[in-house]
Every structure is written in C-alpha cells, then in structure tokens.
Amino acid sequence: MPYVLMKLFEEAPRRFDKWMGILTLGRLQEIRDEIASSAAGPGVQVLEIGCGPGTLASQLAGHGAEVVAIDTSEEMLREAGSKIEKLGMQTRVQLTKISAMELEDRFPDGTFDRVIGILVLSEMTDDEIDYVLQECRDVLRSRGQLFVVDEVEPAGFVYRWFLRAVRYPMRLVTFLVLQAKDLKSSKLWKKILYYVIEFPLMLLTFVVVPPATQPIRDLEARVKNAGFRLVRSSVFLGGTLRLLQAERLA
C-alpha cells in the first residue's frame, strides 16, 4: 500500500476545528464562552482534553483557572503554545502531549475540579469513549464537574436517518475541499496529474473507510454509566450538538 494514501486521513478531523466555527454557525464559540465563565474561576484546576489551538484553554486561564491542556497533535500544541505565550499566560496553562487514554498514568485520582472535552469524544471509538469517561471520573475530585460538548445522534428515527443521509454528501464536499487545499501550492501539471491519477483511488478509499469522526450515540447514558450525575444537558443546532454538564458521584 503506497504511502500516499495515508495523507488523506492525516489531520482531517483536526482541520475541522477551524471549520467547526463556520459549520456550527458560531455556536461553538458561544458554548466556549459559556463554559469558560461557568466552569472557571480563580484557582480552579481544569483539565482540557483535546485543546486544539488552545482557544478555550486561554479563555479559562483568562478567568483565573489553572489549566492543564492535553492534545496528541504536536502541530496543534505548538499553535496553542504560541497563542498562550502571546497572552502571557504560560504560568496558568500547562500544555502536554499525551492522549486521553493516558490520564490515569499521569494524574493521581482527584486532581482536577473540572474536566472539559469539546468535540474530542466523536474522534474516538466506542470503547475508547467509555474508557476516557471513566478516567475523567477518576481524575476529578468528588463533586468535580465534567463538561462535554459533542456531535450526537439526534432524537427521532426519521430525522436521524435524514441527517445521516445529509452527512454523506457533506463529508464528500469536505473531502474534496481538503484535497484541493492540499494541492493549492502545487504546480498546475501536478494538480492535473494528481486528480487524474491519485484521485480515483482516493475516492474509493473515501467510500470504503468510515469517517474519522462520528456522532455519538447515547452520550447521556454513557456519562451516567461512567459514574456521573447529569447537571445539565442542552442541545444546539437542531439536536446535533449537545452540551453535557455532569457531576462526579462521590
């Protein structure tokens, strides 16, 4: 299998981050603002899973919280680092490159007051989601709170299938745009060569391989199963985006 195929998957979900603002019609930033003001406070210890370019982490630190932000992407952490340095918050925000699966190896039980994960769980498999939620519970203090914002399957059978059907062409468009973006700086002959030679194979790959991110099923039930009590659950964007606030059971 040629190396070229790997390029297709690389970072695709990550680049969504920027687009997500557009795709969520600005809602994501509103949610971030809300979480930052309700979750953070002077001296509150916060863990952010999948910090991306560090938007929320800097907001949290702005409210006086002590933030540990983790991500697996070196690139994103670099970007977050420069953002935080620009704002002069290095003492408040600690950026670490570990995966969400390693929380228990790094942090003793009951380290944090808040754990926040925005659009990270949908990048994981079902097994991983359940595991990470249990880890989140462990690293939280008793009565500490978990904030999860993620894409979910909406209620209603017909509506759900309608959205699933819509998702496919949307993914295809995203895929095409990402391909074009990758080639933006290439010479014309390379672009033509790419579209004729590599593209058919890429398209086949697109059809065979399931999406890198998938809406989560039964998010509320899973959070409860992991040992939380739901404090708040609200939906946005026609039920496709859900914000959960949950408290760790003692």
Binding site: V46, V68, R106, T111, F112
Partner: peptide, 10 residues
C-alpha cells in the same frame, strides 16, 4: 499539589 505540578511530573 496543583494540577500543573502534577502535569509537570513525567
């Protein structure tokens, strides 16, 4: 021990 100190500990 603060969360940051924990994180600093490898």
């Amino acid at each position: 021990m603060s969360a940051i100190e924990h994180a600093a500990k490898a």
